[in-house]
Nucleic acid binder design. Structure first.
Lengths: 123, 123
DNA sequence: TTAGGTGCAAAACCTTTGCCATCCC
DNA sequence: GGGATGGCAAAGGTTTTGCACCTAA
């Protein structure tokens, strides 16, 4: 069972207060403003716990490090190939596709991810 | 300009002869059967060169390391949450969606990835 | 009370890079 | 020759882990 600690609450709160899909290290820097002696290991440990419990999700989007997303609902992402920023895409989530592909392949499909890349408005 | 070397050919040939979307390390082990003293650095260097020239692609699918795909055409993937295997999905690629999302967001979109996860037939 | 969490530092891990030798064009 | 590549080893950066001490439930 997962304890609610002030470190965990702070990480979750920072993650939910931004739309920027930050990295673990950025979250670490932010949370340190509030809890100066929190360790990077604790940040990673809590991000894993929160991911496993489904409260946050991890975006794996061609890159050397993970980015995290505090929104509970499923949605799609866009990554700018130049500046690396990640944005949410408003495109409605297609839930039928899981079932269609499941019928076709014989796999049990529980979710899907859709990611776009290109150039953002600034680049 | 990219030279064709026997190391590069061997890597490409191994990658194209499997449907398993292997990791760099697996490719290294396979290619070593043919070129015993090839180095892991060379494998990584050639994978990067081949990726940059568009001959192969890299799949980033929640995981600590990259997997590679020797097929030049765009297609979708499924990852088993239990055994970690990655399979191709026959679902036709939807090319209109790039344009639709581009109109909606104002970004210039050049490509997209679609990934499914769940349980494969064996798991 | 105690199972789970924290801080710290070191380890583990994948990937890239520097250096110099080597191989083709 | 000379630019691109290879092999090796070391560096780089992200993430995990061992351990002793704490703390929420």
């Amino acid at each position: 069972m997962m304890k609610r600690t002030k470190q965990k609450e702070a990480i979750l709160s920072v993650l939910r207060s931004t739309t920027s899909h930050p990295t673990a290290h950025w979250l670490y820097a932010e949370v340190r403003k509030e809890i100066p002696n929190i360790s990077l290991g604790t940040v990673y440990r809590n991000l894993r716990l929160l991911r496993e419990s489904g409260e946050i999700s991890e975006i794996d989007f061609n890159g050397t490090f993970s980015r995290f997303d505090g929104k509970p609902d499923n949605h799609y992402h866009f990554k700018c190939e130049k500046c690396g920023s990640i944005f949410d895409v408003g495109e409605p989530v297609n839930n039928e596709i899981n079932e269609r592909v499941a019928r076709k392949t014989g796999f049990r499909i529980s979710r899907h991810w859709l990611q776009f890349s290109g150039l953002c408005k600034e680049c």
